[in-house]
Nucleic acid binder design. Structure first.
Length: 356
DNA sequence: TGTCCACGTCT
DNA sequence: AAGACGTGGAC
């Protein structure tokens, strides 16, 4: 493609963005530079998460912690509590780590270059480019899933993802080169994918690039990008324990160990195993002290890499009951703990089941 | 109901 | 460097 036709495409996209850009709490008004703290916070939250879901969380965070320094001073536990429900909790742990580094080592200012941003925890190639371009108006190409989809269709790339990632990135860079408005262009590119060049039923009639789009010309827009088929998730099984006093308080504990739900709270649970027969044989926590009854309903939850089925076992603690760890809390105060959605599902079900 | 999508970073 | 890492919504 000639330099001239690329310029024309850039102009059309920027025009389209000027007319159709959505209002978002972290977005600066037209012609204004955004707050880098807001850009960073929103970009971390938006990793793997939709705009609609992120909205309320973003508002809550900037009210609680109006500056990166304020966030740096917060306790990790409070950050996790505020993050609870958003998923991918490593993002929250890295968010806090990053805030501390910005406050202590960067005088509270985010660096503007992609290279410096990449040094920070939780910031990879995509987020570094997004922050550098959106917050500082530096030219950088942020390639997210939206951009990959737009580019794969525009050039009718048949090679499936994820193998095609590098090819798509290079094509994206060509389309973005020298556009003159890095911040707007980055957002316009992604916004096009999010609102027009959608995964299903793309609105090609609305697209500023429709005349040059190869996939549209070939009538295969909806089939792209192709993806290598992934294997079905394995299922894991386990049990959770609802131990509720007459006073209605129930037992929760902080999760130990690394990885999944690290640092979050949960109801006592067995480990989660592939083999259902083995899982059924796992002993109840406190089974020498308490008499458990099984609820008829199970709780199901899907993770990225496995599906989970949990049996629910309930008991009322006897007089001298002593928990190994954890504490009894009321339904009203449960939101002051970082409880993942899975555990919220169990709590909700048990509160409704009238187990005592 | 199941499947796909959001597809980014870290280890 | 392939797998770990959550959750919600569309269809």
């Amino acid at each position: 493609m000639s330099r001239q036709s690329i310029s024309k495409l850039q102009e059309r996209l920027l025009d389209w963005y000027g007319k159709h850009r959505r209002v978002m709490p972290w977005r600066a008004a037209k012609g204004k530079m955004p707050n880098p703290y807001h850009v960073w916070l929103s970009e971390i939250m938006l990793q793997q998460t939709t705009v609609v879901t992120v909205g309320p969380y973003f508002m809550k965070f900037i009210e609680k912690w109006p500056t990166v320094e304020a966030l740096a001073k917060a306790k990790l536990d409070d950050v996790l509590t505020a993050w609870a429900g958003l998923g991918y909790y490593a993002r929250a742990r890295n968010l806090h780590k990053c805030a501390v580094i910005i406050a202590k080592e960067h005088g509270g200012k985010f660096p503007a270059s992609v290279e410096a941003l990449m040094e920070l925890p939780g910031i990879g190639p995509y987020t570094a480019a997004a922050i550098s371009s959106i917050a500082f108006n530096r030219s950088a190409v942020a390639v997210d899933g939206n951009v990959e989809r737009v580019v794969s269709r525009f050039f009718a790339i048949q090679e499936p993802l994820p193998a095609s990632k590098e090819t798509l990135r290079m094509h994206a860079a060509k389309l973005a080169a020298g556009n003159g408005y890095p911040g707007d262009f980055t957002q316009a590119f992604m916004e096009l994918g999010a609102t027009v060049c959608t995964p299903r039923k793309p609105k090609c009639g609305m697209c500023p690039w429709q005349r040059a789009c190869q996939a549209l010309k070939q009538g295969i827009a909806e089939q792209l990008p192709r993806k290598t088929i992934k294997a079905k998730n394995p299922v894991r099984y386990g049990k959770v324990f609802w131990i509720q006093k007459k006073s209605k308080e129930f037992l929760i504990e902080k999760r130990t160990g690394k990885g999944l739900y690290e640092g979050l709270y949960q109801l006592p649970t067995t480990e989660w195993m592939q083999d259902n027969e083995m899982a059924k044989k796992l002993p109840h926590s406190y089974n020498r002290q308490l008499h458990f009854k099984q609820l008829s309903a199970n709780v199901r939850h899907s993770f990225t890499h496995f599906d989970l089925v949990l049996e629910i076992w309930t008991a009322q603690p006897s007089k001298g009951f002593k928990a190994n760890k954890g504490k009894f809390v009321s339904a009203e105060e449960i939101d002051t703990y970082a409880l993942p959605t899975l555990m919220h599902k169990v709590v909700k079900l048990c509160l409704r089941a009238k187990t005592t």
